[in-house]
Every structure is written in structure tokens, then in C-alpha cells.
Computed example of a mutant assay.
Amino acid sequence: MRCPFCAHENSQVKDSRPSEDNAAIRRRRQCESCGARFTTFERVQLREVMVLKSGEKREPFNRAKIENSVTLACRKRGIAQERLDQLISGIQRQIETMGEGEVRAQAIGEMVMEGLRQLDSVAYIRFASVYRDFTEARDFEEFASSVREVGGS
């Protein structure tokens, strides 16, 4: 594993343990050259999934994009990181076990929306405002009233 500080090729594993959701192995490493310590995560990847974006552009599935979006939507909501990791891992497993080599970006967005709807209504509305491209206050009002009808918290 390349050191993120000095780019040396070798590091030593100092500690390994399962992550909180048991979906990854967390490893503490130490660079053999500069001595810096850093953490890596090892996850199972069932298959290489391509994301079909609008305009027929394709790119490899990137878990970090979902992590960033979910983290931003849940910012200052007091939701435990473990619950966010479970949501993200669940979406990733769902995508990888669909049996398809390609998945539409829209389908991923809907999975995130459904997960956030069940997790936190404010985070759900935040994500939807960007995902559905709200342009006016009326868009928020209409969407928020539909969330209340669904029984969001």
C-alpha cells in the first residue's frame, strides 16, 4: 500500500479489525520509509459496475460519491456515522447484487432517496432538493408536504 504522505511503496499493517458494520476490514498501517500512520479499508467488490449517466456517458461505480452526498445531506443532523455506513453499504450491496454490469445513475439516486427517507426526513429533503433540482421555494413546500403525508419524522 502506497503511503499517502511520502508515496513510498511499502507499509506495515499494525492492526486489523472489522469495521462497525462488518462490511469492511479496517487496517492501521505504518509507512516503512517516513513512519507515518494511516488507515485503509478493504471491502469486497462483487463485480465491476458501470454507472450509466445522462447522455449515455459511462463511468465506474464510485462509493465515495454516495458517501459524500449522504454525509452532506445528513450534516448536523446528529445521525451516528455507523448508521450512515450501514445505509451506504446497503446501497452498494444492492447495486452489486442486481446482476447487471450497468446501473443508471437515476436508479442509484432513487436508492439513496429511499434510504434517507427512512433515516431522516430533513436529510431526505436536503438530498432531494439537489437531486431533483429545486429552483423555487414552492418546490420545497410541495415536496415537504408530501414527506409529511408519507409519515416522515
Results as ranks from 00 to 15, higher is better:
residue 59 E to V: 09
residue 75 R to N: 11
residue 49 V to G: 01
residue 108 I to D: 03
residue 68 N to A: 15
residue 120 D to C: 05
residue 38 F to Y: 15
residue 122 V to Y: 01
residue 42 E to T: 07
residue 61 F to W: 07
residue 143 F to G: 05
residue 145 S to Y: 09
residue 149 E to G: 00
residue 115 G to S: 09
residue 63 R to V: 11
residue 41 F to S: 09
residue 25 I to F: 01
residue 87 L to D: 06
residue 91 I to W: 04
residue 72 L to G: 05
residue 68 N to E: 15
residue 34 C to L: 08
residue 116 L to V: 13
residue 36 A to W: 05
residue 106 Q to A: 13
residue 128 A to V: 11
residue 135 T to Q: 13
residue 25 I to L: 08
residue 26 R to E: 11
residue 1 M to V: 08
residue 113 M to Q: 10
residue 23 A to D: 11
residue 106 Q to L: 13
residue 114 E to C: 01
residue 122 V to G: 01
residue 97 T to K: 07
residue 130 V to Q: 05
residue 11 S to A: 15
residue 80 A to M: 04
residue 61 F to C: 07
residue 131 Y to S: 12
residue 147 V to N: 04
residue 45 Q to T: 11
residue 122 V to Q: 01
residue 103 V to I: 15
residue 136 E to G: 01
residue 91 I to Q: 05
residue 104 R to F: 11
residue 56 E to A: 10
residue 55 G to S: 08
residue 123 A to S: 15
residue 119 L to W: 05
residue 60 P to W: 03
residue 129 S to T: 05
residue 82 E to H: 02
residue 117 R to S: 12
residue 131 Y to H: 14
residue 94 Q to N: 06
residue 6 C to W: 05
residue 115 G to P: 07
residue 91 I to D: 03
residue 145 S to F: 06
residue 24 A to R: 02
residue 11 S to G: 12
residue 23 A to T: 14
residue 50 M to K: 12
residue 75 R to I: 06
residue 46 L to E: 13
residue 8 H to C: 02
residue 110 E to W: 04
residue 85 D to Y: 02
residue 43 R to C: 08
residue 1 M to K: 09
residue 50 M to R: 09
residue 28 R to N: 07
residue 43 R to G: 10
residue 51 V to M: 04
residue 27 R to T: 08
residue 94 Q to H: 10
residue 39 T to N: 01
residue 132 R to L: 15
residue 123 A to T: 13
residue 92 Q to H: 05
residue 23 A to S: 15
residue 47 R to A: 13
residue 111 M to W: 04
residue 120 D to P: 08
residue 17 R to V: 08
residue 31 C to A: 08
residue 47 R to F: 02
residue 35 G to E: 05
residue 136 E to Q: 12
residue 17 R to G: 07
residue 2 R to F: 11
residue 26 R to Y: 01
residue 86 Q to C: 08
residue 87 L to A: 10
residue 78 G to P: 03
residue 110 E to L: 11
residue 150 V to W: 15
residue 99 G to Y: 02
residue 50 M to A: 10
residue 10 N to M: 01
residue 65 K to W: 04
residue 108 I to H: 00
residue 72 L to Q: 09
residue 58 R to W: 00
residue 153 S to F: 07
